[in-house]
Each structure stands twice: as C-alpha cells, then as structure tokens.
C-alpha cells in the first residue's frame, strides 16, 4: 500500500450526541468534514449500512437515514411510528432489513428492500429496551431491557427464551462476538456477564451457557464490544474510562483514560484489525486510542455537547 492511496475516502467515522448534529470526520487529521443536522432530538445510536451508502440515526420517535455519498445535510428517509426513544439500530449483513429497539418496549424489524416496509416484524417485552444485538447467523436477535432480562428472539419462529443474569439490574448492552462463540452483556452495576454460545444446526436454537462474570467497572457499564477478531472485549463506563479485556480469560489489558477532561464514555468501535479503538465521551470529544499501548492518538473535537454514539467503518 503506497502513501498516495492512503486517504480517508473509504473510512467512515460518524459521531452524534446531544447537540443535535452528526459529524463525519477525517480520521487521521481530526478535521470534521461534514456536519449533518439532526434538529429534532438527540442521537441515541448510529449505524452505517452494510453498503456504506447510508447512516442511520436512532432518535426520539424516529430513525433517520442520511445519505453519506451526497452533501445533503438533512435526512433522506424518516422511519416513524415508534412512540418513544429508539435506543438502538442495526442491519442485517446484506442490508435486507434493519432492526431497532426502543423505550416503547418493542423491538422491530424494518424491511429495507421494498420502498414501504412491506414486512414488518415486532417483538414486545415488558420494559424499555436498551439494546439489541444480532447473532452472526442473521436470524436471532438478543434483546436487553431495563428489567434486566435478555431475550433470545428467533426471527423465523418468533419463539423466545429469557435470561436473567442478575436481579434488579438493567441490561445496558449485549454483544455477540463475530466468531459466534461468546455473548457479553453489561449492566448498570458495572458487571459484565459472558456466555459461551453453541450454535445449533439448521433449526435448533443457539444455546447459551454461562461462562464468566466479572466487575468491569465500578459504575454503569454503558457499552461492550468485541474486536473484529473476537480476541478482545472493550467496555465503556460512567467511571470515565474504557477498558479492554482479553476475550479468553477476561483479564484487563488496557485502561483508556484521559484524566483531565474525559467524562462518561458512551460508545466505542474497533478498527478492522483491532489495533485502534474509538471512544465517544460526554465531554464532547471522540478519541482514538492505540489498543496495545493505551495511548490516545487523536482527538475529534467539535461537538457542543456530549457525544453519545459513534459509528465506524474501516476499509481494508
């Protein structure tokens, strides 16, 4: 790879938060290249479509879709019909459908292939949904809610199975490792729970076997994310740090801390090779860290208020 070919063109880093804007960044310089307007509410979650053409922003009562290929600062599609905050959003790997979870206690499947959502699917739970994760087999969704229950929702059969890792604790995030071997979940007490997953053949559901539990942080653990090679797990927390754990024994490898200004760390994303990691914090900055050394490499400043979500897509 020559230096000439090293530009930012195919790398997408988007951040959003409470200042009603979404910013796109040039990763190596820290320059904000575009600002998208998200006037009606804060940004709860961001996700880039598999084809890299669009950016979905989960917000209050809506999911807005932005065009990443044009210069239009306004959303081009508005998915509406949810009554409360949409807390998470994600895509099927071919972009056939989109899933979302919200504070209206419903997880939804939005059909993206047809122009008008022909085939919606809905899954209702007892309390507001904080997080939804899609199993790499593309047919099982794991939904975490404020009652502390994780639901395994089979999209083909609509069957579900419940897990309660800890009483009186909210599930704040749930994540499946890309190699489908592990599931991680974090709660508002700072604990992280790990399950081994045994994938079923054809129609048998995935089995979840409790593997480990550890104190990831002393306060709310807000997000957990596996590295693309499934060897690392990153957790972010209200204790103003993000931590990186080895995914085999869950020992602490690195603490990402910037003592001067960093506040709650809300979201995180690994580079495709797992060498670098982005974090988003309430102090209005996103940061890039070297995973091996724990050194902060770049800072992305420009948001007026807390940055609560980021979406990143690396190129290879």
């Amino acid at each position: 790879m020559t230096i000439d070919s090293l530009d930012n063109d195919n790398i997408i880093l988007a951040t959003g938060g409470y200042d009603h804007t979404i910013k796109l960044w040039q990763t190596h310089t820290g320059i904000c290249t575009r600002t998208l307007q998200h006037a009606e509410s804060q940004v709860n979650a961001l996700e880039i479509t598999p084809d890299r053409q669009h950016l979905a922003a989960a917000s209050y009562q809506h999911i807005y879709m932005y065009d990443l290929t044009s210069n239009n600062p306004n959303a081009i599609v508005n998915y509406e019909g949810t009554s409360k905050n949409v807390t998470c959003v994600g895509f099927q790997e071919d972009g056939k459908w989109m899933y979302s979870g919200g504070e209206d206690s419903r997880a939804r499947i939005w059909d993206l292939r047809s122009r008008n959502n022909q085939c919606p699917k809905i899954f209702e739970v007892q309390s507001p949904i904080n997080c939804v994760a899609l199993h790499p087999n593309q047919v099982e969704l794991f939904v975490g809610d404020q009652n502390g229950i994780i639901y395994r929702w089979d999209l083909r059969t609509d069957n579900n199975e419940q897990l309660i890792p800890e009483n009186d604790a909210m599930i704040l995030d749930v994540e499946i490792s890309p190699d489908s071997q592990l599931m991680a979940s974090v709660n508002n007490k700072g604990r992280c729970y790990i399950w081994s997953l045994i994938s079923g053949v054809i129609d048998t559901p995935t089995k979840m076997i409790p593997k480990q539990k550890f104190e990831a942080h002393t306060r709310h653990t807000l997000k957990c994310k596996f590295s693309p090679d499934s060897n690392l797990l990153a957790t972010t927390s209200a204790d103003t740090t993000a931590r990186i754990w080895s995914a085999d024994h869950f020992t602490l490898l690195q603490e990402l801390k910037q003592t001067e200004s960093q506040r709650w760390v809300w979201d995180t994303a690994f580079s495709a090779d797992g060498q670098y990691i982005f974090t988003a914090s309430s102090d209005g900055n996103a940061r890039l860290w070297n995973v091996k050394t724990g050194v902060m490499e770049r800072e992305y400043a420009g948001h007026q208020k807390a940055v609560t979500s980021l979406a990143f897509r690396d190129a290879s």
Partner: peptide, 22 residues
C-alpha cells in the same frame, strides 16, 4: 435465512486502512 456460522472464518490480522493511515 440462517447463515451457517460454524465455518465462520475470522480474518487474519491484516493491517486495516485506518491503522495504516494513522
């Protein structure tokens, strides 16, 4: 459609574009 994940190959530690850029 259920995707078979049993042979889900994890990509090798090839340097990503971001890492190269940084």
């Amino acid at each position: 459609v259920k995707k078979d994940v049993s042979h889900n190959k994890i990509q090798q530690n090839k340097t990503s574009k971001l890492s190269a850029l940084i």
